[in-house]
Write a protein that binds this DNA or RNA. Structure first.
Lengths: 234, 234
DNA sequence: AAGTGGTCTAGACCACATG
DNA sequence: ATGTGGTCTAGACCACTTT
């Protein structure tokens, strides 16, 4: 475990355990260095990481302060931990509707920069929050990188499997967001009246070496899905 | 100008001028250090900043690569430069509908942690893209921090005025996103049929010392507004 | 003036990828 | 084995805020 990550985690845990309010002042930089027995540079890096995550904010010449991070009921777009983590406290379940092999559509060809005969796993599932439909997930996994998938893996955690069994590390992702009217099929799946609005979130995931391996096209129930993100202007 | 920011800007400019494609390999770290005459640590910091912005991605043991950043027609949620910047190439205009002084509603009291008699400027305006309505902006500026506003300032750039004339620096912001059915008034303002979907984006801006000073509640026309964000999983 | 966060450096060492 | 990115350190110096 890297030192600055470890220190960052420990500071974050302390903040959460003590339930410090937004704006609470933390000990000074040099003070924290002594407390955690690391150099100034390492502490600066740990704090920069926490600031990026929205856990704290730093004011030059003044101090280090707690920033309110979690908003109960909101799905975080910043932290990529998946909404099972964001929505802890709610009952999250899922149902697999389809798991098949398909070849690249024109959309996939463009997004993955691949030929039309490249094979993908297509996974369609519903995700529920407290037994109400939260979203429809349409995922395309590139078989070049994910050579095998089955229903068991999918019922558990695809990303967990990808990282542990295949040792494929997630590097970064692009997200595309918009609203639109639901089509008949999606409205029905989401248990909503025809022509209800939908929140559309497309995510393209890249490995740590920059190769795209998963496109997820998600349609969220507007009544249950609210999103949240934090940014810093530096 | 800080050295690492300067170096980062220069590298970014080079990438854009040369129109390097996604995946193009840049010179090695040490190579870049020599080229820009900075220490390794400073270059690491410059590159970390570019990686965070989505301009490049780094692969340990392998190299530094260009990441495709801008998606034409999409509004970036990551870079806080405002959509006039994201949508360069389109004609962006605006029309002020209302500029009045109000006292804190219960929503404002909660978000700003302020008493009910605290005064705010309320600004309502429409923003157009190529002469079509893109969004309705409802902004509340805290008079404690922004003591004066008039129509002239508002027609120009509120954030430019805040930063230059008032020397108030933007520190960070919280964003809340959801879809919903438009009410009659908003649908009419957006030139959309009744009960069309709308993309709702609320933004709460904080000063660099952590004081919230602006709440913007924005309703976007789902036909013209598409959003984009990049994240890294490290 | 004192205290606090932020930048920058040189250099040692570590971790990963590629040939 | 070599090269590449990444971490960590001690310490000098800078910029901003508070008293």
């Amino acid at each position: 475990m890297l030192k600055y990550i470890d220190v960052a985690n420990r500071i974050e845990s302390t903040i959460k355990e003590q339930k410090l309010a937004q704006g609470t002042k933390l000990p000074s930089l040099m003070n924290l260095c002594e407390q955690y027995q690391v150099s100034k540079t390492t502490m600066v890096k740990a704090l920069a990481s926490l600031e990026q995550q929205g856990v704290i904010f730093q004011v030059q010449g003044s101090g280090i302060f707690v920033r309110l991070q979690k908003r109960p009921g909101f799905i975080s777009l910043t932290t990529n931990s998946g909404f099972t983590h964001d929505l802890s406290g709610y009952k999250i379940t899922s149902k697999t509707l389809e798991l098949t092999t398909v070849t690249a559509t024109s959309d996939l060809q463009e997004k993955f920069e691949c030929p039309s005969d490249e094979p993908f796993y297509f996974l369609k599932r519903l995700r529920y929050i407290d037994d109400q439909v939260l979203c429809i997930e349409n995922s395309y996994f590139r078989q070049k990188l994910i050579p095998y998938l089955n229903r068991e893996i999918v019922e558990d955690s695809v990303f967990g499997y990808i990282q542990k069994a295949l040792n494929l590390k997630i590097g970064f992702s692009d997200k595309f967001l918009r609203a639109n009217t639901l089509n008949t099929e999606d409205a029905e799946l989401l248990s909503l009246p025809p022509k209800s609005p939908g929140f559309f979130l497309d995510e393209l995931f890249y490995s740590n070496s920059g190769v795209p391996f998963d496109l997820s096209q998600n349609v969220y129930n507007f009544k249950h899905a609210k999103f949240f993100m934090q940014s810093i202007n530096k």
